[in-house]
């Protein structure tokens, strides 16, 4: 993997948004605004636009907060040099949001544990879990509420897919995630 970033959105296999480069918070906000605009132009289901937008943000903030990075630029901008791609396309009215970034090996078990908790939960149970964890703050930490994966499952129309692949550096994995919205 090279030091680049790729974000693209496809509708019926047509790319409607694509971006390549490094990521930081400002770029994520700009991308989110562009994605919102493009979705509002191409999708009449406001609820779907809301869910895609919110899951794009959730995914991008996960990448910003938890990606392996070999350099942190000054002033807490947390620009990351890891390689990832993010795209969304529709077929039978389902948007697919796919991302790919580098993580440290120990994070694989954390992600697996989170997914194990939610894998058999239906929509109602996921809503209940959000309420429970929001009030208990049991998974909350400095960077977030620890609710990201539950929200992803709640706003998705099919189970998310994740994949961990080796990377050519010890202790680092390539993490791929695909959401169906």
């Amino acid at each position: 993997m090279k030091k680049s970033l790729k974000i693209c959105i496809k509708v019926d296999d047509n790319v409607i948004y694509e971006f390549a480069g490094k990521i930081n918070e400002a770029m994520m906000i700009e991308a989110a605004n562009d994605i919102e605009k493009l979705l509002l132009e191409s999708c009449f289901n406001k609820d779907k636009v809301k869910n895609v937008f919110e899951l794009f943000v959730e995914t991008a903030q996960n990448i910003l907060n938890y990606s392996y990075r070999d350099k942190i630029v000054d002033d807490n901008s947390l620009e990351t040099f890891c390689n990832y791609s993010l795209y969304c396309f529709t077929s039978d009215s389902t948007y697919v949001l796919e991302s790919c970034n580098l993580i440290e090996t120990y994070q694989r078990e954390i992600i697996k544990e989170k997914l194990e908790v939610i894998k058999d939960l239906d929509h109602k149970a996921l809503r209940k879990l959000v309420r429970q964890k929001s009030r208990s703050k049991e998974d909350s930490h400095e960077k977030g509420a620890g609710l990201g994966y539950i929200m992803m499952a709640r706003k998705s129309c099919a189970p998310m897919e994740v994949e961990f692949s080796p990377y050519d550096k010890e202790g680092i994995l390539v993490y791929k995630q695909r959401l169906f919205i």
């Binding site: 919110e54 903030q61 977030g144 509420a145 929200m151």
Partner: peptide, 11 residues
């Protein structure tokens, strides 16, 4: 629109 951390803040 709001993120999951905001969800917790609203609670």
């Amino acid at each position: 629109y709001f993120n999951s951390a905001t969800t917790q803040i609203i609670f």
